[in-house]
């Protein structure tokens, strides 16, 4: 088991180096002089030169990269060009908002997705099942940014029940963003739960449990659900990755002050240090989540465990 964990951690290193090269090269891939891009066309030559020196842009690329990486591993991505605050500080200020939103979205997707999947699986091809599965397919195909605007239109503009944007602290502010962000995950989890549940329900031990006289409810909840949820656990883990991506659109619509909105603002303002820092943070968080998912899976699946003994 530990061998497996160690192997997975070591495998992360080249991946993170690769993504760091990409993050570093981002501003050099953009056509034009990076300093000029960041400061604008009219910037005087002295200011440009000062920025070049400050960011080390006058050094050869490999040297720049090594210097940049040396700082990045200590979480130093320089300062934001807009606020002049350290990038890490910006990230840390925004992180709680995104974390809160992601957790709320996961909570919604679990509370709705798993029961819907279980009921669908226990009554396959019933009206409930058909409606739920078409709904789930619709949920996967829903453009989050449009869904968010529609929710605002209905619940804020027309009904006036919920605020349309911001994060003032009250629970009412998180409902619409979390619903928007959680829709696709809810749909995936419902589909996944249904299909694994169907598979488990067709197995012999379920028939045995039923034939020894246990109620259907008890069999489903106590015997089947436990096994059906193993693949669902990993899907939930992976959903966090999609939630990070979805947060970019959701946060933009609801003016939610999180990481997703930060990266969009930074890209539009050509604030490269912030873009680089955000990309690296996303990559590290995503890698960590995947690592936890894989280890959980190995822990739950004895076949994988013995492979690395």
């Amino acid at each position: 088991m530990w061998k497996y964990v160690l192997r997975r951690v070591i495998m992360l290193i080249p991946v993170l180096i690769g993504i760091s090269i990409f993050a570093f090269l981002m501003m050099h891939l953009t056509p034009g002089d990076p300093a000029q891009l960041m400061l604008g066309e009219q910037a005087p030559e002295e200011t440009l030169a000062a920025l070049r020196t400050r960011m080390g842009l006058d050094q050869p690329l490999p040297v720049q990269y090594v210097v940049w990486l040396g700082r990045a591993v200590r979480f130093d991505f320089g300062r934001s060009l807009r606020s002049n605050k350290p990038v890490v500080q910006e990230l840390l200020e925004r992180l709680p908002a995104t974390g809160q939103l992601a957790l709320a979205a996961v909570a919604i997707s679990l509370v709705i997705g798993i029961p819907v999947g279980v009921i669908s699986a226990t009554k396959p091809n019933s009206i409930f099942d058909n409606v739920a599965m078409v709904g789930a397919l619709a949920g996967v195909g829903m453009p989050a940014f449009w869904q968010g605007i529609m929710l605002i239109l209905i619940f804020s503009v027309t009904l006036g029940w919920l605020p349309s944007s911001g994060r003032m602290g009250g629970l009412e502010y998180i409902i619409l963003p979390a619903l928007t962000l959680g829709t696709a995950s809810t749909a995936s989890i419902a589909r996944m739960t249904r299909s694994t549940m169907l598979e488990v329900l067709s197995q012999d031990y379920i028939r045995t449990a039923r034939s020894k006289g246990l109620s259907k409810l008890r069999v489903v909840v106590k015997h089947a659900l436990r096994n059906a949820l193993i693949p669902v656990v990993t899907i939930v883990g992976l959903q966090f990755g999609y939630l990070m991506a979805g947060a970019v659109l959701t946060e933009t619509i609801f003016a939610w002050p999180g990481i997703g909105r930060l990266i969009v603002e930074a890209i539009n303002a050509k604030d490269f240090p912030v873009v680089q820092g955000t990309i690296m943070m996303f990559a590290v968080v995503y890698a960590f989540i995947n690592l936890v998912v894989d280890i959980t899976y190995a822990f739950l699946d004895p076949r994988l465990r013995t492979q690395y003994k």
């Binding site: 993050a23 981002m26 953009t30 873009v275 996303f282």
Partner: peptide, 23 residues
């Protein structure tokens, strides 16, 4: 390993990052 690097970010974020650098 190249594919692993591309997988280091969720797809939409990777696309966003690439567009951010290409313009």
């Amino acid at each position: 390993r190249f594919v692993d690097v591309l997988l280091a970010l969720p797809g939409f974020l990777l696309a966003l990052a690439i567009v951010a650098s290409l313009g």
